[in-house]
Amino acid sequence: MLSPFFLEEPTTVAEASSLLARHGESAKILAGGTELLLVLKERLATFERLVHIKGIPGLAGISLENGKSELRIGALCTHRALEKDPLIRSRFPLIAEAERQIANVRVRASGTLGGNLCFAEPHADPGTFLLALGARLVLQSARGSRTLGVSDFFVDYFETVLEPDEIMTEIRVPPLSESAGWSYHRYALLERPSVAVCVLLEPDPGGRHIRSGAISLGCVAPTPVRATEAEKKLVGMALSEVGRHALEIGREAAKAGEPLDDLYGSADYKRELVAVFVKRGLVQAAARMEGAKR
């Protein structure tokens, strides 16, 4: 049973922010509740007041902006909405495919993208693929707003740069070209991933070589991380060569993590999973690029 709390139901971001500022640590934002309610049940934290923000209009839309290229996702979009949205499925299939794999169907129906990011659970999916996609996160308060990249947002296990009075309002994702190759691999025993790997490859104008590649790793460090040394090895590589080098790049990528031995597996096991997922991901992404050329 949950401990009693007082419910606030603001109707604007400014009002919500003011409430959070006024009540400080005794208040917390309630969105989908899929993480917060578990924390409250386990008595890992208690809050006198929850600020329910789902009544604030305009925080759950999905649209293309800035010349119809940048994707704007309202922070209160549920995972299910993202998985099913026709625009995301056609223009950002990586997001739809990754969202489809999150937790279970009930969590996806309730949990929000913004809530997931702000909770900063290291064993989560969205931070990993949004990092590879170069997404930017918009934080608003009664004082103003700021926009940050994913790597500037996450600080540590369950810790972000979010100020007590700030609310994540949207997630902006730069265009994903149709010729890009992508993949998202995760392994999970139950709801949360043990390890997750996202690969995103952009071709050069000829379409036969990789212009740039992003490899992001989830659950193997306090925050999602990019495997920058491994990414360097991809620049200029012919698509036909990817399969041959994929495992070696996977082994390099695994060095970017600092996994811990925990209930999700040993550190060695997680490093091995990273190498294998990067290998599979590179092969799959390259195959998608080959497919896009035809």
């Binding site: 309630l30 509740g33 899929t34 309610l37 578990l38 049940k41 169907v105 009930r106 969590v107 129906a109 309730s110």
Partner: peptide, 8 residues
Amino acid sequence: PVSSCTSL
């Protein structure tokens, strides 16, 4: 479908 145990 939602988990009624974790829905307010």
